[in-house]
Amino acid sequence: MTEHVVPLGFDADAKLLVHTMPDVRGGQTPATTLLFVPKGTAPTGGWPIVAWAHGTSTPGQKTCAPSLTPELDGGLTRDGFPSDYVYQIGELLNAGYAVVAPDLEGLGAEAIGPYPYFGASSGARSLISAVKAGRLADPHLSNRYAAMGHSDGGHLALGVEAHADEASELELVGTVASVPYTSIAATADHFGEAARTATDGATASQARMMREFQGALMAVGLTAEKPAFDPRAVMGEDLARLLPEFRSLCSVKAIGTIDAAVKAKGEAFNGLKKDWASNSHMEAFLAANDPAASPDFTLRRPTLVVQGTADGFVLEPLTTAFVERLRGKGAPVTYKTYPGADHFSVIRSANADVLAFLREHFAR
């Protein structure tokens, strides 16, 4: 445990915790987590905890970690996607919550194994391990926590409930998923259709790139769990050749590698196969990790899902359909949409609703 730089405006103490967590292959691995604790006297029972998960900062480069960047986003803001993560964590601290923000398995200065991108169990255990490490580091933290995340972090937060009983000393009070990255195959299909029907070349190229991006992320995540998997089973040579570089970069530059290659070859780009998501290994990976692809996935604890209508990465119609399926199973999901909000502006748009949800469920 070491002191950490406190972002400007935080009235809090910050520490970098080095601990262990279960890894994706059944062992233990080093992990790093940022712990932020409000200054002042803890309330009776200790500071309630928000376990907060960041969005996609990289397909696989361990240095693209929140703890290594002042904006707490692994380079998103630096590379041109202002994340507003500092704002969100600051709002949580001002509301009286301690925040644990894990780098996630495979990310951060201490990481020694691969980053299992999109791995639901890995992400859930990263968050739970972060809560446990935070309580060991600071005796003034409560045993009650909420899971929360943005984009892929929102997807990971949705998976915590399934593993909450692995830490029986802790109480999960609820989950907040901000624009959760789910419905991957449907997202790829959407962009594929957009590319086919576009009336201008630039729009077609952008949509084509976004389709390839979905498959590249999933192939990288699958190979982290199953190194023997050959990505060429789901994609052509042009996209497969990009994967080593793609995996080694932070998010924005990783997207840029695919964008440049797609623009160079246009419709001739040999990328995702038409039936890529039906490959037996990929289908199993999506069923295990994408809650929208699992017929058995449901939630039993209070959950808030927030979604902007102008999000170009996580698509509102797909999130709405996913939430409707959950509600059809009786899941206690509150769903809020924000007209005109995009992938990052939704953080400020939803802030009041997020804080109200947390306040309500920590009070129970």
Rank of each mutant, 00 (worst) to 15 (best):
H4Q: 12
L8F: 09
L16K: 01
L17I: 03
L17H: 00
T20I: 07
M21E: 14
P22K: 02
D23T: 05
R25V: 09
R25G: 06
R25L: 10
G26A: 07
A31P: 00
L34K: 01
F36E: 04
G40L: 03
G40M: 02
G40E: 08
A42T: 01
T44H: 03
G45W: 00
G45V: 01
W47S: 00
P48H: 02
A51I: 00
G55M: 01
T56A: 02
P66D: 03
L68T: 03
P70S: 07
E71M: 02
L72Q: 00
D73A: 00
L76N: 10
D79T: 03
S83M: 04
Y87D: 11
L93H: 01
L93P: 00
A95C: 06
Y97H: 05
Y97I: 03
V99S: 02
L104F: 12
L104M: 15
G106H: 10
G106T: 11
A109E: 14
E110T: 12
G113Q: 14
Y115Q: 07
G119W: 02
G123N: 13
R125H: 11
R125W: 02
V131N: 03
H140Q: 14
R144E: 13
H155P: 06
L156P: 09
L156H: 06
L156T: 13
A157F: 02
V160W: 01
A162P: 06
A162G: 06
S168N: 13
S168W: 15
E169N: 15
E171W: 07
V173Q: 13
G174Q: 14
T175H: 08
V176Q: 14
V179N: 08
P180E: 15
Y181G: 13
S183Q: 09
I184A: 10
I184C: 05
A185K: 10
A188T: 12
D189K: 07
F191N: 04
E193R: 15
A216L: 05
A216N: 07
M218C: 14
A224T: 07
K226C: 12
P227N: 09
P227E: 13
F229W: 05
P231K: 03
A233K: 14
E237L: 12
L243Y: 05
P244H: 10
F246M: 06
A254I: 08
A254G: 13
G256T: 07
D259N: 11
A261R: 03
K263F: 08
G266A: 09
F269H: 12
F269Y: 12
F269L: 09
F269N: 13
K273T: 10
K273N: 09
K274H: 15
H281C: 11
E283I: 08
L286S: 04
L286D: 09
A288L: 13
N289K: 08
P291H: 08
A293Q: 06
P295F: 04
D296R: 15
F297I: 13
L304H: 11
L304E: 10
V305N: 05
T309G: 06
E316P: 00
L318T: 05
E324W: 01
E324N: 12
L326R: 02
R327G: 13
K329S: 14
P332V: 06
K336H: 14
A341I: 02
A341Q: 09
I347C: 07
S349T: 15
H361F: 11
F362P: 01
